[in-house]
Amino acid sequence: MAKYMLPELIHTSQTYEDFLRAVQGKGLKIIEAKASISLDIGSGASAVFVAPNGTDYEDLNNYSAVLKLTYKDMLFLSAGDAEAVSENEMLLARYNLKADVLKVGHHGSDSSTTPEFLTAVSPKYAVISVGKDNDYGHPSPDVLAARLRRM
């Protein structure tokens, strides 16, 4: 049976309800994505969730499933939309966050990619998923100029 992993949260938007119906309609089993859950991918790859670490966040972004992927000798960390609260929890949990490639959290917003988190990850490369000229002003000039350029 195919599986779909997502953080456990209660969200009542119509979009989320439609999403859950679509996943269930396709016969996919929903499994909770949370810190310390490991995935055996095979072919020299493995993955472990390093967030979310909590269950009661004010901001939905902190429920983001943050995944560390190892493929042979390459390390990738995908931070989803995790913000500073979630980043701090990962640091406090003392996860090995070191990665060669970081998918920057929350589209490069200044609410994530804290200097402490960047120091722990210490990536060689950073990737930001963002639409050009978006209404949110992402990525943050501070994240680009003051944080990522120092890597």
Rank of each mutant, 00 (worst) to 15 (best):
M1D: 14
A2R: 15
A2D: 14
K3M: 12
K3H: 10
K3F: 12
M5F: 15
M5T: 15
M5R: 03
L6V: 14
L6Y: 08
L6W: 01
E8T: 13
E8D: 08
I10W: 10
I10C: 11
H11C: 09
T12W: 09
S13T: 11
Q14H: 05
Q14N: 09
Y16I: 14
Y16E: 09
E17A: 11
F19D: 02
F19S: 01
R21E: 08
A22R: 02
V23E: 03
G25R: 00
K26W: 13
G27T: 12
L28K: 07
K29W: 01
K29C: 07
I30F: 04
I31V: 14
E32F: 09
E32S: 11
A33Q: 03
A33I: 07
A35G: 09
A35M: 14
S36Y: 13
S36A: 11
S36N: 14
S36Q: 11
S38Q: 05
S38K: 02
S38D: 13
D40T: 13
G42H: 03
S43K: 05
S43W: 00
G44L: 00
G44W: 00
S46F: 00
A47L: 03
F49S: 03
V50P: 00
V50Y: 01
N53Q: 08
T55K: 00
T55F: 00
Y57A: 09
E58K: 04
E58N: 02
N61K: 06
N61Q: 10
N61D: 07
N62I: 01
Y63R: 06
Y63G: 08
Y63I: 05
S64R: 09
A65N: 04
K68Q: 06
Y71N: 13
D73L: 06
M74V: 10
F76Y: 14
L77M: 06
A79H: 05
A79I: 05
A79R: 02
G80F: 06
D81I: 10
E83W: 03
E83N: 04
A84P: 03
S86F: 01
N88P: 06
N88A: 12
M90L: 07
L91E: 02
L91Q: 00
L92E: 09
R94E: 10
Y95G: 00
Y95H: 12
L97I: 08
L97Q: 07
V101F: 13
L102G: 01
L102Q: 02
K103T: 15
H106N: 07
H107K: 09
H107R: 11
G108F: 10
G108T: 12
S111E: 14
T114S: 12
T114G: 03
F117Y: 12
T119A: 15
A120Q: 03
V121T: 13
V121W: 09
S122G: 11
S122Y: 03
K124C: 12
Y125E: 14
A126V: 04
A126D: 04
A126N: 11
V127E: 02
V127N: 00
I128E: 01
G131P: 04
G131A: 11
K132F: 08
Y136T: 13
H138Q: 13
P139I: 11
S140W: 01
P141W: 02
D142H: 14
V143D: 08
L144D: 01
A145V: 13
A145S: 08
R147I: 08
L148K: 07
R150A: 06
M151S: 02
